[in-house]
Amino acid sequence: MSARARLRRSSAVALVSAITAGSVLLLAACDPSADAKADAKAAAPATTPSRTAAPTASASPSAATTTGAATSAPGTATPSAPAQPPTQPVKAALNLTRGTGLTISTGTNTVLMDGGAVDFGTVVRDLAWSPDGKRAAFVDGNGNLETSDPDGSHQTVVAEAPSGVTWSHPTWQVFTPNAEENSTYLKPKNNLQFTADDHGTLRILSVPAQGGTPAPIHLNGPSDDTPTPIPQTGNLWPNVGNRIGSSVYANKDDGQVYIRDEYLRQEGMAVAKGSQPDRDEEGDIVFVRSVAGHSHLFTKGSDYRAPERDLTPQATVDYTEPAFSPDGKTIAFRAPDGIYTVPAKGGTPTKVSDTVGLPAYRG
């Protein structure tokens, strides 16, 4: 096992009590190949959290999308029929996120977590968590990159998306060298990486989490392991997967999953055919690949030359957007009717939520 695979992230799991209850609407994830089906649910409002702008952020904000509330036309209302008692009890929506660290962002104000729902007071798309679980990163209703506390308070606009450019799927890159690591090469990091779709051109950008000007991440050219050039565009769905800051991402044009090694040399290479990858602490990856007309989940060990394993060989619907739990033992994923989990070593999927959205683990 490489030195990278032995490194561990120190994380603190601090679960948040739910402020509100109910399920919410899915906004489709950022990958252009992702399923765009939505499941509408109502959520109770909560106090709108405060929001501040990061002082160093630059670029012009994109236009906000405003939806006006419907109003009744003047005139005499037709009396409604008396309400009839229900013939059977209304079944509560399934939400088994309590105590798991699993969160589900739905493209509305509400995020499912810890068995309930938290109203962030603003649209939350593609929620991701810092390694210690103390800050959330997401794309807001204006298309800008924001961070906040887990309850939606202390919101900060990290950077504003230029007009006509769509940002999506942030991931948090944090690294603090310890006494045994060579700080000459391994510099501290506290960045957010995300996908930028600039009129059809896809790139992965990085920006300091405190605010700044986003810039494309560095992608090396050919290496001994990768004799062909690494694509500089068409890249999306980044996920940082260990405390050094190494990551995985996909390329829409060639249909490959790539690793990006932050350990000293920042080398990268394609490791599998697929999309929507995630990486755990040990360097194992999970990704999506189409089999017989449906999206299956595949895993691959840290020895990237090893064969892949189909976690969902019996899939009869699309399984997408997988996310590793912090201990690497569980994978949450999206299905058309909700969120499921499956052991990373294989097994029977278990439904944990009726709400369809993007799963992510906090801490």
Results as ranks from 00 to 15, higher is better:
P208M: 09
Q155E: 03
T350N: 08
G363A: 15
A12S: 12
A179Q: 09
A81D: 14
P277F: 04
T71I: 15
P277V: 06
G346W: 08
P336W: 05
A12M: 11
P32K: 14
E146L: 14
G293F: 08
G234H: 03
R6E: 11
D354P: 07
S223M: 10
P322H: 06
V123D: 04
R260S: 09
P322V: 10
A93G: 14
E321R: 08
R135D: 01
G101K: 06
Y258W: 14
A323D: 07
D132W: 05
D132Y: 05
V317H: 04
I259P: 01
S33L: 15
H296C: 05
P227N: 13
L127G: 00
D119S: 09
H218C: 04
T341A: 07
D126W: 15
V157T: 15
T156H: 12
S246P: 00
K189V: 11
D225N: 12
D35W: 10
F138G: 00
T103G: 00
R125V: 01
T67S: 07
F120H: 04
V158C: 11
V24Q: 00
V118F: 01
P177F: 13
D354A: 10
A272N: 07
P277E: 01
L94S: 00
G245W: 01
L26E: 09
G283Y: 04
V165K: 12
V257W: 08
A14E: 04
R265G: 06
